[in-house]
Amino acid sequence: MAESVFRSRIAEDGLDGLVEVDSAGTDGWHEGDGADPRTVAVLGAAGYPHTHRARRFQASWFDHLDLVIALDSGHLRALRRLAPTAHDAAKVRLLRSYAAEADTGTRAADALDVPDPYYGGFEGFEECLDMVEAASDGLLKAVRAAVTKAPPAAADPHPQHP
């Protein structure tokens, strides 16, 4: 869901040639599967494209990533444990830390989690989409600032990878 929403934000902002957006899980439980039908329905109703195949995040990917976005504190910890260096671990951030209403100084890390709607009803998927959309606006602002600061000749063609 987050990949579809942020990919759309990047395209709307004209950064799709500069920013690569992709997704992967921290475990391989659903590897090779498409998105949950409820996710597909919620994304479709909101007008987002939704092509996805689950795969597991690989530590070797850190070499070419500038930013890795986690949706909850468990994923944040798992991704930071996978990071080969402290520099790579610092690339991992929570998506909702970019939301306008986020106050990371006074809230526990799990207060910034996007809850996994898998075991709940359809409304959990809608709530998840709302959280992802709100945070994606702030993430886009941060990515745009990072991309536009880089000199064009030296810019990495894939500067961001949530």
Rank of each mutant, 00 (worst) to 15 (best):
R7V: 11
S8N: 10
R9L: 09
I10H: 01
G14Q: 05
G14C: 01
L15I: 05
L15F: 11
D16K: 05
G17M: 06
E20W: 15
V21S: 03
S23G: 11
D33L: 11
D33A: 15
R38I: 00
T39D: 09
A41D: 01
V42E: 04
L43K: 06
L43H: 02
L43V: 00
G47F: 06
R53G: 11
R53Y: 09
R53M: 07
A54S: 14
A54Y: 12
R56K: 15
A59T: 03
A59R: 03
W61F: 12
W61C: 09
F62G: 06
D63G: 14
H64F: 15
H64P: 00
L65A: 12
D66G: 15
A70K: 09
S73W: 13
S73A: 12
G74K: 14
H75V: 01
L76S: 03
R77K: 15
A78I: 07
A78V: 07
R80T: 00
A83P: 03
P84F: 06
P84G: 05
A86G: 12
H87E: 15
H87C: 09
A89N: 04
K91P: 02
R93T: 08
L95D: 01
R96L: 01
S97L: 00
Y98I: 04
Y98S: 07
A99F: 04
A99G: 01
A100M: 07
E101I: 04
A102K: 01
D103E: 02
D103L: 06
D103H: 08
T104C: 13
T104E: 12
T104V: 13
G105V: 00
T106N: 12
R107Y: 13
A109L: 10
A109M: 10
A111W: 13
V114W: 05
P115N: 00
P115S: 01
D116W: 06
P117Y: 05
Y118R: 08
Y119G: 10
G120S: 08
G120E: 02
F122T: 10
